[in-house]
Design a protein around this nucleic acid. Sequence first.
RNA 1: GCGGGCGUAGUUCAGUGGUAGAACGGCAGCCUUCCAAGCUGCACGCGAGGGUUCGAUUCCCUUCGCCCGCUCCA
Length: 531
Amino acid sequence: MAQAASQQLMEKLVALCKRRGFIFPSSEIYGGINGFWDYGPLGAELKRNLKEQWWLWMTRWRDDVVGLDATIIMHPRIWEASGHVATFSDPMVDCKTCKGRFRADQLHETPCPRKPSKMVSECDGEKTEPRPFNLMFKTIVGPIESEENVAYLRPETAQAIFAQFKNVLETSRQKVPFGIAQIGKAFRNEVTPRNYTFRSREFEQMELEFFIRPDEAVEAIYGEVARPTGPGHPGSPQPNWGWQMWHQYWVEERIRFYESIGLPRTTLEEYWQRPEELAHYARACVDIQFKFPFGTQELEGIAARSDFDLSQHQRYSGKPMTVFDEELRAAWPKLPASRQQELQERYYRHRLGYLTRMGEAADKAETLARQDAELLAKGYYIPHVIEPSAGVDRLALALLCHAYDEDQAPNEKGELETRVVLRLHPRIAPVKVAVFPLLKNRPALVEKALQIRDLLRPWMNVFYDDAGAIGRRYRRQDEAGTPFCVTVDFETLGEKGPELKDTVTVRDRDTMQQTRVAIADLLGWLQERLR
RNA sequence: GCGGGCGUAGUUCAGUGGUAGAACGGCAGCCUUCCAAGCUGCACGCGAGGGUUCGAUUCCCUUCGCCCGCUCCA
């Protein structure tokens, strides 16, 4: 029953998005293309506002984060370093009998789902040939279609940040801890795009890579590392924070962001990945999930990625990804020898573990890890990373799902009718204010309304409408999620007495209440409520 | 990728081997002194391709897309 209701809600939402111009199927006149969606006039505004809010929140309003806008196609070696070529392109075998799909190189180690006593390689299910299974979109750079010209559309925006880490560090006058933020398209050849726009093949990400000192460096400088003492926001960043504090800080910051654009905490769930679920390089990962009608699903992942990413690029590119930390350099010689040794040993073990997992030969791994530990004592390290990574499209979908509402409103005859209203937060509403003349066939009303449109237009997205009855125009804006409608009536013109001259009615989307506001105060009145 | 269901107007639906209608919506005009009013008119569709047929939206095949379940999900 609940399932049927949620399905109905999604169907209504999809119809509304189509009808009002939020979201269309891509290439619809040719029958559409699976996993691709376009944003119409209202959707484009919504998404733009969403990204704008994120950008303000994550970079402009902070001193310690800067932006980046990198290319979608990058050097293919980036995806070898990141691990995407390996994990995204295993040849797979499908079993037509049990419908299972298996990695071709693991058939001898994977039990058959039907007869677990046998391995897949020895069961009698009918299997396909191994087929390459690449979740990255491939393309050719340059006109020659040859293997060495193959490149990929990025499956995530993050790697560009790591690849440009050194350039940004050197030009931005930032010091660790600091972050690099980026918004951009990413592409994944998903097996099954599903749930409307939730899992699309072309999508947009908003990612922050926040670079922090390794705990050993914090400890060397400040004596000890501050760790979380309980749940909740830990307050303003402190220099002695270790990775756990930073991770918790970003989880809480991100939730505050969602609250600021109209997703209350009650609509969200935190999912802390269990140790066995974590990627091998991750120390922790929290998914911020939204309770979609089709299930509770991830909006954003906040991962503590250790120094894995920059380390990989250091190994693959041969360029050092270390930073020099003057405070660490100054603090180190003042430490007792035993402390130095203990910190170096811990750092060494961490580096050795990483290098070994990445397949370096034991003796080489030991040499490299020893070098890293020596560098630490001189003030050099590879920064660790906290990565809050959000999907723009699924967030837009979450906002639409949360905003969709139906209530009862009286029509002209006083009968109750169902009113569809998108209760979007004013910050992200595509249209901030609609301006109407009460009647279209009175030139004085129209003229005044157009003046008000022009008055507000430099400051916000305004929509002017004079077609049909006023009630109909209100309802149209309700479906678009417009928080305020301004109507110019005969009072505005001074026909009902001088005291209401040059005032307008402002109608509130959610309460349908009307307020009389002087035109002179209108801009300020609205801006206060749109902030 | 597998199995099942479904594709008719912007939306929700009806219908037929002789090339389609309703409601709501949209646009234009008239009207309308605050919540989808009224009148008049207009526009828009059988997902695509192929086959059978004198003729296909209807039957057949292919394909694309959507929904559900499974699978997958760095």
